[in-house]
Structures are given as C-alpha cells and as structure tokens.
C-alpha cells in the first residue's frame, strides 16, 4: 500500500527526516512512535501530500506522491494533529463539503456523510454548529472528514490527543474497527494506545527510523521481552531467592515491600511468567498479581531513546 524509499525532508539546512525506508501492507494498522520533534508529523504530512519531500520516493497504492499528488490525495484520508474544522459550519455541511472536495458526487454525498456520522456516532450532531462542540466531538468530526470519501489509506496524527479516558477507549475501538477496511497509519504519544491498536510499529528518532516491527519483535531485539512484575504476600527475601532460581531469570529486585504486599521486578531472557508463578506458589507465597513490566512499549521506547542518545 505504501512504499517509502530514502525519504528525506530538509527545512533550511536541518533535516527533519532522513532517508526513511519502510513499507506498509494493505489493511495493516501501523503506529508511528517518536519523541516530540522526531519527525513524525513531517513524515505524515508528506504521506498526506501536504508537504513535498526534498528527496526520496513515496508510492501510495503504486502511485508516486510527487508525480501524481492528485491521484494519491483521492486515496488518502488525513487527520492532522489539529482537526481542520470550520467552526461556523454545521457538522453535516462540513462533512458534505469535505466529501465534495475529495470528489464524491453530489448524489452520493448524503449517503457518505451519513455513513461517516454513523461510524463516529455523530448522527445526533448533524445539525450542530462545530464551534459549539466539545473537544471529543471535534476530534470525532476530524476523523469523520478523513473517512467520508472512503479512502484506502487513513493517516491519523495524534487522534487521541486531548481526549478523556472514555473518549480514548471509544477512539481505540473505532480504530480497531477501521483496520482491514482501511490501511491505517497512526502517530501518537500514547504508547499504550499504539500497542493496543496497531499491528506494527515504526520507531522514529531524530528523523530516522531506528526500529520497526511488532511489539514482540522490538522487545526481543532489545532484550526487554522478559520484564516481569510480581506482587505477592510473604517474606520478600525468600520470594527474591525463589525468583532468582527460576531458569531464564537474569535478575530480580524488590521494587516495593510492605506488610501486606511485596512487589518484585524481574528481568528474564524471555517471557517466563508460568515458571515464576509455579515456583512462587510451590514455595508457599500467595500470588496477588503477575504481569509483564508496567508498559513494555514504554521500556522499548526508553531503551531506543537511550541508545540513540549514546550513539
């Protein structure tokens, strides 16, 4: 669906992105992860045909972005980091305008508007003035305009930024539903968000892709696959000894110790949660909780950021 080769963008003498190379298959949901200023938005704007690259090639569905931007734009739905909304328009009129801009015929427009309103649960807001909507609804209208012409590729830049927890869950469910129907490319600062909605991750750092793959592949490559957290009831020192003796465990530390609960942080070569659980229970400890590290993606990201800084 998307082929990116040696994509570079300079702003003056500074390279915002440098020689990016990646592919995205049709129907795949891919997450763009990176710190502020890493080049995510620049890359998405080039894919969305808003910016032109300084060099390199981008093909969307076999069409070269710089050679035939019009053709590419028909295939793309783009939600920038700030939803492009006209406050004085009603939701229905705005979506109809967006549909007509993307080449939907006058006859088909009402159907497409209704379809995108249904997907985003905006039906009741059809006649509301956009300027009067809450932040969550504005974000939904932003996604609806990106969907209204049934694009093959959906590019969402920070779709959950500023949403409350309920709205985040709703947006996450929506993105999951869109997978398969559209190819989805999302950038987000919410790492948990990305890990729950995307099939694959592209980690961008200082304008370069430093890692790509599934969460498991990235964790295995960085040696963070076996970060495990255990909460139990019982003597902390014994629990630590038991955990350290489990085959595959590299290190174990007491993260927190209180009368009612002890928390251990364990580093292992691989995910050996069953073995740890069995060993602790057999040793007479009451197991309260056993999970991977608080946020595996977070540790992957921190690891990558540290490596980048060192290099």
């Amino acid at each position: 669906m998307i082929e990116v080769r040696e994509l570079t963008k300079y702003f003056g003498g500074r390279a915002a992105i440098r020689e990016l190379n990646f592919d995205i298959r049709p129907g795949e949901a891919v997450g763009f992860v990176g710190l502020n200023g890493a080049g995510k938005t620049t890359a998405l704007k080039i894919l969305g045909c808003v910016l032109l690259p300084s060099s390199g090639q981008v093909r969307v569905d076999g069409v070269e972005v710089t050679a035939e931007p019009h053709e590419v734009r028909r295939k793309i739905g783009f939600l920038p980091d700030v939803p492009p909304l006209y406050d004085e328009m009603t939701v229905g009129a705005y979506l109809a305008f967006a549909a007509r801009l993307r080449g939907v015929t006058g006859r088909d427009t009402p159907v497409r508007v209704q379809e995108s309103e249904d997907k985003l649960a905006l039906r009741d807001m059809h006649d509301e003035i956009i300027g009067t909507l809450s932040y969550g609804y504005r974000q939904r209208v932003g996604v609806a305009q990106a969907l209204v012409h049934r694009p093959r590729l959906l590019i969402l830049d920070e779709p959950t930024a500023g949403l409350d927890p309920v709205q985040i869950v709703e947006m996450r469910n929506l993105i999951r539903r869109l997978r398969g129907e559209h190819t989805v490319l999302i950038s987000s600062h919410f790492l948990a968000e990305i890990s729950q909605t995307c099939d694959r991750l592209l980690v961008i750092q200082a304008g370069e892709i430093v890692a790509q793959g599934t969460e498991e592949e990235l964790a295995a490559a960085l040696g963070t696959a076996g970060e495990i957290e255990v909460a139990l009831r019982g003597p902390a020192a014994t629990a630590l000894d038991v955990a350290r003796q489990v085959p595959g465990v590299l290190d174990a530390q007491i993260a927190h110790s209180a009368a009612h609960e002890v928390v251990l942080k364990i580093r292992a070569r691989e995910d050996c949660r069953p073995e740890i659980a069995r060993a602790l229970v057999l040793a007479g400890h009451q197991l309260l909780r056993l999970d991977r590290g608080a946020s595996r993606l977070e540790s992957i990201f921190i690891e990558l950021a540290q490596r980048e800084r060192l290099s």
Partner: peptide, 14 residues
C-alpha cells in the same frame, strides 16, 4: 493560522 488549510491542501484540489 487555524490549521484548516490542511483540509484543502490534503484534498485533490489544485
């Protein structure tokens, strides 16, 4: 300024 120009520049409009 308001960011709405992107709606036009990302659409198939010259």
């Amino acid at each position: 300024q308001t960011g709405t120009l992107v709606l036009l520049t990302s659409s198939p409009v010259r």
